[in-house]
């Protein structure tokens, strides 16, 4: 699978799983995209740990100190899986995986080169020494527990946006 092909499949599958998808080419575009998907005055949690997160964090005047109090989490995630349109969150490097879980809106930044083609590729990469927590996230939180009718945002986010950089 070529990189372009993988990217296309990933975006398509992520969209099918009801995630918002955005594809940008550089940091400037990323900030513009963030400006579009995040309401600028909502309390945002951004760990500010990676280059992209540092750039993103500067954009938001209202910052939540803790993800539990945030309306939005903006973070760069470990990677993605094209096969299923999944983003992969990892606890590696002292990251709080639950930061993307508690706020109602999760914005995940993924670097293009971090897309794995299949679930096998992903697990081959992490199976040797998995960190404490690896969570595969595909679309927003959902349930069909009442009459098998889909309802979004049970305990996790109601909205998931993925920005591919």
């Amino acid at each position: 699978m070529s990189d372009a092909e993988m990217e296309r499949i990933f975006l398509e599958n992520a969209a099918t799983a009801a995630a918002g998808t955005h594809s940008v080419s550089d940091t400037g575009d990323l900030l513009a995209a963030l400006g579009r998907v995040v309401a600028i005055d909502s309390p945002v949690f951004c760990p500010g740990m990676t280059e992209l997160e540092k750039a993103a964090a500067a954009l938001f005047p209202v910052r939540a100190a803790d993800y539990a109090a945030a309306a939005v989490t903006v973070e760069e995630v470990f990677g993605a899986v094209a096969e299923t349109g999944t983003i992969v969150c990892s606890s590696e490097g002292g990251r709080a995986v639950q930061a993307g879980l508690l706020p109602a809106h999760h914005v995940a930044i993924v670097r293009r080169e971090r897309i794995f083609g299949t679930l096998d590729d992903l697990f081959a990469a992490i199976a040797f020494a998995p960190p404490t927590n690896v969570t595969l996230v595909t679309g927003p939180s959902r349930t069909a527990d009442i009459e098998l009718t889909l309802a979004i945002g049970v305990h996790g986010p109601e909205k998931l946006d993925i920005i591919l950089v």
Binding site: A17, S91, G94, R95, A96, V97, Q98, I126, P130, P131, T132, N133, V134, T135, L136, V137, T138, G139, P140, S141, R142, G156
Partner: peptide, 16 residues
């Protein structure tokens, strides 16, 4: 929506 792989409890340096 979610697949969690949990390997042990929180370790030094972990935030999860």
């Amino acid at each position: 929506s979610y697949v969690s792989v949990i390997t042990g409890p929180r370790k030094p340096g972990d935030a999860t």
